[in-house]
Each structure stands twice: as structure tokens, then as C-alpha cells.
Write a protein that binds this DNA or RNA. Structure first.
Lengths: 322, 322
DNA sequence: CGAAATTATACTCATTTCGAGAATAATTGG
DNA sequence: CCAATTATTCTCGAAATGAGTATAATTTCG
């Protein structure tokens, strides 16, 4: 490009400036008894998306408006994920760009009833290798490890082969490494690169026999979902966003199960309690659960005041190995 | 809006879909002896920005291309900051949107020579209240505190008044609170809301007598810069991005000074060393500095291998209070 | 009804990490 | 050689963390 740097965003830019279409895409997350779920449309193979329109005051507002229309509820929390650009593939002569701006939205499980074309689906339908709540899923060592190793061995150069092996080992915790729940996107990208997910085989005539389990999505929606999950998994460790997903009143165990659903791994119960308590994130309601079995649990509510009191309200999580 | 959720990003969206202009804006950071600096254009009151063009393969590529043209050097590190939308204020009848996609880019100080219309400026020209390397700047308690208090007292309702006071106290560390270097954006927004920065007075006839020190920028560029600084300050704590700003070989003190320049506060020297060492982030070159005074310091280089070895290469920083 | 099962909650303890400061080492400039 | 200066190493107590044990309050079942 030859355009000179413009001193002002108001200036008319020289060069081949052009117009683009703007799309808003949402990863709407809720946690139900079935686990962590995402709002989908179509054959449960697409994320809800809509155009940014002139009537919208702002991007956030645009997204909020139509997501609320769709779910019928306020979105407690919206956060921008990533913006990317693609040439429009609708095939007109005239070149056109599509700018996609993706968001992560958190809502409450009680609002999460399915209806019409929308459906709540478990994260783990799309990423079955991400759920380590009862240890590493068998498919990781039974299927992924050998396929990724085979992919690494395809490499001609020895150095490339080693690099691929190492990347796979880090991402999936092979060779006795720890599992890192935050690497959702890296793992998906690795599987894509290795041609093991359906999305990677689309352009080519590649055989589909090597595909691994996990529902695919249209376009790059599964990648966006991976981005959202990764963001959320990392964010719950230092911001009290979990509470956006909780009912107004809850027990410690419910809170813990929610965190475990999101992070895909178990936490140590007493330590979890200790951390939440010492950060003053919750307060007792005075009530207890009328549950069926065992000692009744005290009910708590989120102390919304912490959001004002402290700049950085942390939610540290004790993620255990087992 | 009445458009229905589209099941596919390829589908033509119904409703008032429209085209938008896409602008790329860069916060290019380097650290010189003069401290942390940002690349500016114009009267040093604008960030470099350019249009996203059809020839660009991708957003990253577009930005990289022209920033490299401008600085004459590779950008080691680029990261997306935020995307926002504004109605075009150039005033044509036809409504038009401008989508601005901002990036944070890190480059090396040795490349940071000024030339032509471009100039490297210290962060702290724009945010003089952010430099706490020799304690809180006098202006914080001499000017900001009283102005913000006055603004709080303008509020009619008592609850609003209290809320404003508390926000100010958290953001700026009043009433004996700790200074939190990460709140760069919150502080700028607070000052904007209180009408204390030039940008806030533009639309109105407000008197400029209450403005606080600090160079303003066109449009919302100072806000974008604040976003970039905030991102970088928080990121150096858990990712080894500082090294993007360092020469190939450096001493511990140089590294420490860079971190201090960025974070705007001092760190404890022995503890800083301990942390960097125990994370294996650097390795000795075997050489020492031929400096003037004092015991010669060993020279180190960044161990690029850590980026491959570990998924999360942390750079924890011991930020001290004094 | 009473023991077993079940869940909640409280406590303990060793290990690691962290913040702060003191001590020692290697230079240069008188 | 001594003072000043910067680098580097150690020490130590406080706090945070990981893991496990003990106790409490229920329901369920024999």
C-alpha cells in the first residue's frame, strides 16, 4: 500500500480505501445442569450472528439489542473477543470485505431454555477433548495422540517434526506434561493444521476418514467459540465473572460446579471455599437449601459491592491435578 | 432492529445492513533512554492510522505492512486492542460508519529515531499522572484530587456523590489506597467524565480553565493510547513481551528499567532478578558491560526457546510500594 | 430408632512464594 | 588504599497455596 499516514481519522484516506460489511457474532454462554453451554442457531452448527446496522448506537448496543431480542433476557456481561476480516466469498465480481466482530456474552442458566431455531448445546459437543473433569478423556490418548504424532512424522525436516511433536505435547499434555485448560484455541488450531477437524478438509479432496470426534460448525464459528471459551477460562481466574452465570442465590457447591464446568477440571473443595471467602466475594443470605440429602448448605449471594470497592476483584481458583 | 438471526455468515443479512469504512490505528511502543514512548504523527497529537485496503491479505498484514514502511523496521509483536464504531463526522448526507480497529505494536528502541512528520513522544507527556517511578507525582494530590472532589460534589444526589468519590479514590489511590498501575483507561475516562481533559470540552462551550496538565490528541486517540498502555502494563506481568522492547543483549538493570518505564513504578532489584532467573527467561552471553562506574554487569539475552517450551511463559514482576 | 451414607464446613500442616532488607563482590575515581 | 558505585547473593519472616483430616448436620435404610 502506498497511502501516507493520515494525521487524522477524519481525513479522507488516499489509496484503495473501500467499504466493508460489518457482522456481529456472539458466543453466548450459560451454565445449566447439563454443563457449560453455548447458544447456537441452524443445525446447532452456527453461532448467532447479525449485521451491524445504522440504527445501532454502538457495536455493543447493536449486539446487545438483538441478542436480548433473541434470548428474551438482559445480557449481564458482554466483552469483545476479536475482529477479523475476510474477503466475501459470496462471489460477486466487485470485491467486498466482511469484517466480523465477535463478542463473548454471559447469561443465566434459568434463561437458557431452548426454543425455535435456537438451541443450547454443550461446549463439549464441539470440543470433546476439553472436558477433563473426570480425568483426561480417553480420546486424548487413544485418538488424538497417535493422529498428531502421525502428522508430526509427515514432516520432511527433522526439526519441523520435533517442533510439531513439542507443540502437540504442550497443547495436549503429552509426555507427562500438565494439562493447561487455557489452551483451547491453540489446541483447535493444532488439530486444524493437522487436518483432523472437518473444517480443515473443506477446500480440498482430503479423505474424511481421519477426522476426530466433535461437531463442526460453519465457516470459522468453531474457532470463534474456541476463542470465547479460552477467554472465559482465563478470565474467571482473575475477575469475578462467574457470578454472571449464577442465579441470585446459590450454594458453594453450585458455584464450584459452575467453575468446574467452565474450566473443565475439578477444584479442591475446602480450598475453593477458602479463596472465595477470603476475597469477600459472597455473603450469606441466612437461608439454607432444602435439598434432599446430606447436611443442608448455606445459601450465598454475590456481593455486588466488590465491583465498586476494589478495582481488581480477583477470583483465584485452586485447580487441582486429580 | 428486526433482522432475524442469520444461520450463516455467508447469508445476505436482511434489514438495514450497510457498508462501513475501516480504519487501522496503531499504538506503537518503544522504550528509549527517555522512557516509554509512542509513535505519533501530526503535531504529535495523533496516532498513526491508515485505511484497511483491498490489497491487504488480512488486518494484521495491513497494519504490519504500513507500520513497517513507516518505521522501516519489523514489528516484533502486534496485538489487537479494540474495535469501535463511530458515525462519520465528515458530515455528508449519506450516513456512513467508520470502524476503527486499534492495535498495540512493540518495537525496539534502537529503531526509534524520529524523522519527518513522525515523532516519538513519552507516554507521560499525555498522561503525566501515570508516572509513579519517583512516588506519586505532585499533581495527583495538588490538582487532580481537588478537581475530582469538586466534580463529585457537583452531583445532586448524595449517593452519586459518594459513588464518584469512591471511583476517584480507587482509580487514583486517594484516602490511603494503593496505586494500581493497570487502571490507565479508567483514570482517563474518569478525568474525561469530570470534564478535566481537553477532549471532553470539545463539543461544548465549557471553560478550559479547569483543564489539567497533559497533552491532548485528536479524536479519541488519547483514549486508544490509554487502552494500549493499560494492556501492556497488565500483559508484562504474565507474558514475556518486555523482551520485544529490548536490544538483543542487555543487563538486568536495563531490563528492570524498561519494566519500570512501562509500569510507571519501581521494582525491588534483587527480587526482580530472582523472578526472571527462576523462570529461565534469560541466559548469560558470557560478556559483561564495559560501562563506566561500578561493578560490571553480566550481559544476558532472551531465551527465545521459552516461547516454545512452555505454553505460558510468565514474567512475574515484583512491584514494590515505595 | 440408630447406624451408615452423604454433604457441608472447619482446621491443620508442610511447602512454596513473596516482600524486604542485609551482606558481599567487583569495579572506577580519587 | 579508600570512598563511591553498581552488581549479585543470601537471609528471614509473612503470606499464600496445595493437600489432607476432622467435625457437623442432614437423609436414608435396615
Amino acid at each position: 500500500m502506498k497511502g501516507s499516514i493520515s494525521a487524522s481519522s477524519k481525513a479522507t484516506h488516499s489509496g484503495k480505501a473501500h467499504d466493508a460489511n460489518v457482522d456481529l457474532i456472539a458466543v453466548v454462554v450459560a451454565v445449566t445442569d447439563q454443563g457449560p453451554s453455548v447458544l447456537t442457531v441452524g443445525q446447532a452448527n452456527a453461532l448467532p450472528s447479525g449485521p451491524f446496522e445504522l440504527g445501532h448506537r454502538s457495536l455493543q448496543f447493536g449486539l446487545r439489542t438483538w441478542v436480548e431480542q433473541q434470548t428474551g433476557h438482559q445480557l449481564g456481561y458482554i466483552e469483545q473477543l476479536y475482529t477479523f476480516a475476510d474477503r466475501d466469498r459470496t462471489g460477486e465480481q466487485r470485491q467486498q470485505r466482511v469484517i466480523s466482530i465477535s463478542y463473548l456474552a454471559l447469561t443465566r442458566a434459568e434463561h437458557a431454555a431452548a426454543s425455535g431455531k435456537r438451541a443450547w448445546r454443550s461446549w463439549y459437543d464441539y470440543f470433546p477433548w476439553e472436558d477433563h473433569r473426570s480425568g483426561a478423556p480417553p480420546m486424548v490418548s487413544d485418538i488424538l495422540q497417535s493422529r498428531l504424532l502421525a502428522w508430526a512424522d509427515e514432516a520432511g525436516q527433522d526439526s519441523l517434526r520435533r517442533e510439531r511433536r513439542q507443540r502437540a505435547a504442550i497443547a495436549f499434555g503429552f509426555d507427562g506434561r500438565d494439562w493447561n485448560e487455557d489452551l483451547v484455541l491453540q489446541r483447535y488450531e493444532l488439530l486444524y493444521e493437522a487436518g483432523l477437524v472437518e473444517e480443515a478438509t473443506r477446500g480440498s479432496e482430503q479423505s474424511a476418514s481421519l477426522l476426530i470426534p466433535g461437531t463442526s460448525m460453519i465457516a470459522d464459528h468453531r474457532r470463534i467459540l474456541a476463542t470465547g471459551i479460552a477467554r472465559l477460562r482465563s478470565k474467571i481466574k482473575y475477575r469475578p465473572v462467574v457470578f454472571e452465570l449464577m442465579p441470585p442465590v446459590f450454594t458453594f457447591l453450585q458455584l464450584q460446579r459452575t467453575v468446574e464446568a467452565l474450566s473443565g477440571r475439578l477444584v479442591h473443595k475446602p480450598n475453593f471455599r477458602r479463596l472465595i471467602e477470603q476475597q469477600d466475594l459472597v455473603e450469606e443470605t441466612g437461608e439454607t437449601t432444602a435439598d434432599t440429602v446430606g447436611r443442608p448448605a448455606k445459601l450465598f449471594r454475590f456481593r455486588h459491592a466488590v465491583l465498586d470497592e476494589r478495582a481488581v476483584a480477583g477470583t483465584k481458583l485452586p485447580l487441582s491435578r486429580a
